[in-house]
Design a protein around this nucleic acid. Sequence first.
DNA 1: ATGCCGAATGATAATCACTATCACTATCAT
DNA 2: ATGATAGTGATAGTGATTATCATTCGGCAT
Lengths: 128, 128
Amino acid sequence: MQKLTAQRQAILDMINRSDKHWDADDVAYALKEEGISIGIATVYRGLAALADQGLIESIQLADKKRYERADKAHHDHLICTRCGSIEEFCEPEIESLQDKVAAERGFKIEGHQLLLFGLCKTCKAEES
Amino acid sequence: MQKLTAQRQAILDMINRSDKHWDADDVAYALKEEGISIGIATVYRGLAALADQGLIESIQLADKKRYERADKAHHDHLICTRCGSIEEFCEPEIESLQDKVAAERGFKIEGHQLLLFGLCKTCKAEES
DNA sequence: ATGCCGAATGATAATCACTATCACTATCAT
DNA sequence: ATGATAGTGATAGTGATTATCATTCGGCAT
C-alpha cells in the first residue's frame, strides 16, 4: 500500500549517495540544489515511508530524527557532544545481551537504539 | 551557581516519592494537586537544573523528556510501543562492552542511552 | 538594617520539528 | 473511461520546549 513514487525515489537516491545522517531539511535542501523541488511535508512523509519499508534507517536524536542508508550492517552510534559528529560502531555481543534481557522478561523486541554520548577523538584532544 | 530553591526542592521531593518516569506536565500537575503551583517554565528549568546536578536522571524519548529518581543503580529501559509502559533493566556486561568500543576509538564516553522498543509481556499476550 | 547583585520566577511569546488538513493529482485495477 | 486508493504540496496547527522580560528572592558586604 506504500508506493515508491518519483519523489520518494529521489529522496532515497539522495540518501544512498552518501554516508551522512540526514534530517528532513538536509534532504529538501540537497534536492533543491539539484533542481528537484519537493514539498517539505512530502519529504517528511517520504522519509517515514522509506524507513517503514526498511529502505533507509532512522535514528532519533534529542532534537530531531535523522536518516541514513540501510544498505549497511546494523550498527549503533557514538555522538560527539562537542562537534556533533556521528560515528558508527557494531558490537554483536551487545545485541545478543539485549535479546537475553528481553527474553528473561517476556518482552518482544521490535527495535532498539543505543547512543553513546561524549567526546570524539579529535575533540578530546582539543579539550584543555 | 545553580540554586536548590523551594520550587526545585518541591519538584525533587515529588520525583523522589515514586518510581515513575515523569514529564514536565506530570510534575506540574502533581504539584498542583498538592496545592503547590509552580509556573510551567519553572518546572522545565527546575528539571533541567536538577538533572544537571545529578539529583535526578533524564531519559530522552522520541516525543518528550522524562525524569526519574537518581538514587537507584544505573539502568536502561524497555519501552512498550503499544501501552507506553517503561520497564527498567540493568546489564553490566553491556556497559563494559560500551566502554570497550569507545576505548578502541579514542572516544570519551560522558553518557549513554539504550532503549529497547517492543511489546511488554502483557501486550505480547494480548496481540492476536 | 540597607543596598546590591546574580540567579530564579512566572506569564507569555516565540521557536522548531513535525503532523493534520484539504484540494488536487497520479496510479492502478476493473 | 471510471472509481478507488494513495500521494502531493501549500499551509495551518500541534506540542514540547525555550526565550524574553519585568519582578522577586537570597546572600553578602557595607
